[in-house]
Design a protein around this nucleic acid. Structure first.
Lengths: 214, 214
DNA sequence: TTGCTCCTCACGTCACGTGAGGTGGC
DNA sequence: TTGCTCCTCACGTCACGTGAGGTGGC
């Protein structure tokens, strides 16, 4: 293992942080960060902090940036299970992207259905579509076989917008501050609220459904 | 271990599904469901399918409902990490019924909140409330701490009713026949459609949310 | 009988967590 | 010197995944 020696503390040089200082700086943004996790990420070569002569880890600002990036990817479930893919140059190529005709074919849909989905605001038009669009269009194709068309779901988009408005209003007290840790907390709270709203909604739908076949 | 024997196939009885049939029915809704995971969830006593005399697992419609519930909780990160907590009465304990004051206390709610939930048609009034009502009221109590009140969610009930109407209209060709097997098929189709609608809706909400903190 | 599904049990694995035992640094 | 942070290494754990070896069912 190659050990870089730490650069001398020059006036004006960016400070190098110990593992504890890194934690203190990032736990607000990533609450479940631990020393153990940092060591694990290094073992997986997702980060490569320098070392002091005696073996202490020292994190540069660019290490911090990289760490933030890795943790964000992981939090938003964009991290593929095998770390080996990080050997490839572009980390962001993790999500599959496909052109319009491939999307239509994979989803078992038709060009007309995609047009309808776009004009009903259920799928955002794009040059290259992602996995989310594929999942949605696949569902729309199956729903069409039951006689449910995209235009029947126009209300979904409006409801999602109203829900966003509700969540935004709940975030106002937190979102006023614009520093990174406050923004991260706001995002976390937003996801939490969305999850709770989904539980309420799914309960209502289940109980409505149960009236169908008791 | 107590082994229930499987009831004989009576005309009109709901069909019991093997582990493979359960998988076929749920992989669209929960793509990473596997036999291994189902067995694991049973080991953790989160589901308790019946067994044939020879030991094959058999899942009833209510097992399916419970499974859907457990998987949804898990997907939305509401499943507590330690399995030990399931020994204590919790949201996920099966078949539990409780009176009004116990519901309010367990949910961390207030009598007023339950009244509001009932008058906003988010919780159905009852003498004994079930785990579903507990889950909903718990969410409503947490939402209230973010400033979101039951009355803000009145639209949820109306949307659920519209969704039921949509599903009912899709069922008309199947539901015309009133024999047991047609009714069972209709119920299955209804749940399937509801699952697809949920995928579309959650995608819209996720994409709306992502506009909050890019 | 064949091919398929399903069973249990033991072990593997992935992403860490948890001490034990030891050293560095103001 | 003391108390704190940090180190490695071994082992534990949680939520499953993976065969091995065997039986059930149309």
């Amino acid at each position: 293992v190659l050990r870089e020696s730490v650069q001398a503390r020059v006036p004006g040089a960016a400070p190098l942080l110990s593992i504890g200082q890194v934690l203190a700086r990032l736990t607000a943004e990533f609450p479940d960060l631990t020393p153990s996790k940092l060591r694990f990420l290094e073992e997986r070569q997702l980060i490569s902090p320098a070392r002091t002569e005696s073996g202490y880890r020292k994190f540069s600002p660019s290490d911090l940036d990289r760490l933030r990036f890795v943790l964000t990817m992981q939090r938003d479930h964009y991290l593929p299970p095998g770390g080996s893919t990080f050997a490839s140059p572009s980390i962001l190529s993790a999500e599959r992207r496909m052109p319009r005709d491939e999307l239509i074919r994979e989803a078992g849909a038709t060009p007309q259905l995609l047009n309808d989905a776009v004009s009903s605001s259920l799928v955002a038009p794009a040059d290259l579509y992602g996995e989310e669009a594929l999942a949605v269009l696949t569902c729309l194709a199956e729903l069409q076989r039951s006689g449910i068309e995209p235009r029947h779901l126009r209300g979904f988009r409006a409801a999602a917008e109203r829900e966003l408005g509700l969540i935004e209003s709940a975030l106002i007290p937190v979102a006023r501050r614009k520093d990174a840790s406050s923004r991260a907390k706001a995002g976390e709270l937003a996801r939490e609220i969305a999850g709770q709203l989904e539980i309420v909604r799914s309960s209502l739908i289940r109980s409505a459904l149960s009236r169908l076949d008791p």
